[in-house]
Design a protein around this nucleic acid. Structure first.
Length: 257
DNA sequence: ATGTCGAGCAAAGCTCGA
């Protein structure tokens, strides 16, 4: 069972690339972020025609997350995190597919920092940590997939110096991610690629980031112990980033037994 | 670390968010 996460950066702008990737990678589950669309603007017919059932938590213009399942309809469990005081951001949706609980997460970017956006990011991470703890209690295979907007370690960014003031690399962001991991989640990419290789998932459109491989590893798939037991592979579909009209993120995936 | 995008608003080019 292959479960992927892909920040599409506009589902309509990206539709040809998304359909092409679904056709060639054939993920069983695809967690999408940054739909930047809702309602009538979600190209549901094209997704259905590609053979996928879908649920989404959309939003006009910004944010927006979805879960696609090949040949079936994901069974929605929740949208939004518990106790969220600001329901205007569509950043979390959770479903069960084929006996696995899957979440599609678009964690706040948090720039500029310090400031209210960074405070919002850290508060959002606290709510995610609380909810994740409740998921572990179920003792099921769970995959928390998405754009976390956090580089776990220095190796996960092309330049520690250039990123020194960035919300994605701040000690507070990393400490919050570690507290989540320390509950008992496995960072699937690191579990399969323990060598200190970058395995970036995002390259900015600006400043020639892609041609000079100036990326970050910020898209993660965190596995509950029951999911980690079944982990056989994980990787990044890096070539997708190099295509015409590409998203600034590459699809990232796990294969579970 | 700013050389770029995507979307909204409103009808082209600015603003915002990344």
């Amino acid at each position: 069972m292959r479960i992927a996460t892909y920040n599409v950066n506009g589902i309509n702008a990206r539709l040809p690339r998304l359909l092409e990737w679904l056709e060639e990678a054939r993920p069983d589950v695809a967690c999408l972020q940054e739909l930047k669309a809702d309602g009538e603007k979600i190209p549901i017919q094209a997704i259905t025609d590609a053979g996928y059932g879908a649920i989404w938590h959309g939003q006009k213009g910004f944010n927006g997350v979805a879960i696609l399942a090949r040949g079936e309809q994901p069974v929605e469990r929740r949208r939004g995190l518990p106790d969220d005081p600001d329901e205007t951001h569509s950043r979390y949706i959770e479903a069960e597919v084929g006996g696995v609980v899957v979440a599609s997460i678009y964690l706040p970017n948090g720039n500029p920092q310090p400031g209210p956006k960074f405070d919002y990011k850290l508060a959002w991470m606290e709510r995610l940590i609380d909810h994740a703890a409740s998921l572990l209690v179920e003792e099921k295979p769970v995959v928390l997939a998405g754009d976390y907007n956090v580089t776990p370690r220095d190796i996960d960014t092309f330049s520690v110096l250039a990123m020194a003031d960035d919300a994605l690399t701040q000690p507070e962001s990393r400490a919050a991610l570690r507290r989540l991991l320390h509950q008992g989640w496995t960072d699937a990419i690191r579990a399969r690629h323990p060598e200190p290789a970058p395995l970036y998932t995002f390259w900015d459109y600006q400043a020639g980031a892609w041609p000079r491989d100036a990326g970050f590893r910020i898209d993660h798939l965190l596995l509950s112990p029951q999911a980690a037991d079944r982990l056989v592979d994980a990787n990044v579909d890096k070539a997708v980033r190099g295509r015409e009209k590409a998203s600034d993120h590459a699809p990232t995936w796990v294969e579970l037994r």
